[in-house]
Amino acid sequence: MELRINGQTYTVASDAAEPLLWVLRDELGLTGTKYGCGLGICGSCTVHVDGEAMRSCSTPLSTVEGKAITTIEGLATVEADGTETLHPVQEAFIEEQVPQCAWCMSGQMMQAAAFLSNNPQPTEDEIIAAMNNNYCRCGCYTRIKTAVALAAEIAEERRA
């Protein structure tokens, strides 16, 4: 089966029922996407499939064939000379010093990035609703709220 991930094409031999999470992590070595619960509850494994946030732990491989998958490794932009430009969400999460252990943060940032692409100027309540199904055990919630709002501002400035 062929998968399109972060703009590259990969051929994988995994079973069609295998969750995308374990194919990414164990077969392709893209370990930035994290396991948290396996039930699609905690959000640690969130990736983008055709631009929408999806829980890769409960997404069978068969459902993503031919679709554009983005993982945390593909969220930043890399120029031809190797210069890496962080996505506004990544930049904001550093600026606000959001992550502690950061195990949940790939999922948090992928969730936030997909949300902001659909809603570039969200209210605080909309941010909370969008981020409400992503657990953070270190308790970075207050900073996540601030950082997602800041990411919206950064994206706005970049568009200007």
Binding site: R25, G29, T31, G32, L75, A76, I94, P99, M109
Partner: peptide, 21 residues
């Protein structure tokens, strides 16, 4: 002072025990 480990952590590069290969 800003955390020294966050660039690797927001880009998915940081390696945890579960990520060792």
């Amino acid at each position: 002072v800003k955390r020294v480990d966050l660039r690797d952590k927001v880009t998915g590069r940081a390696q945890y025990g579960f990520d060792m290969r």
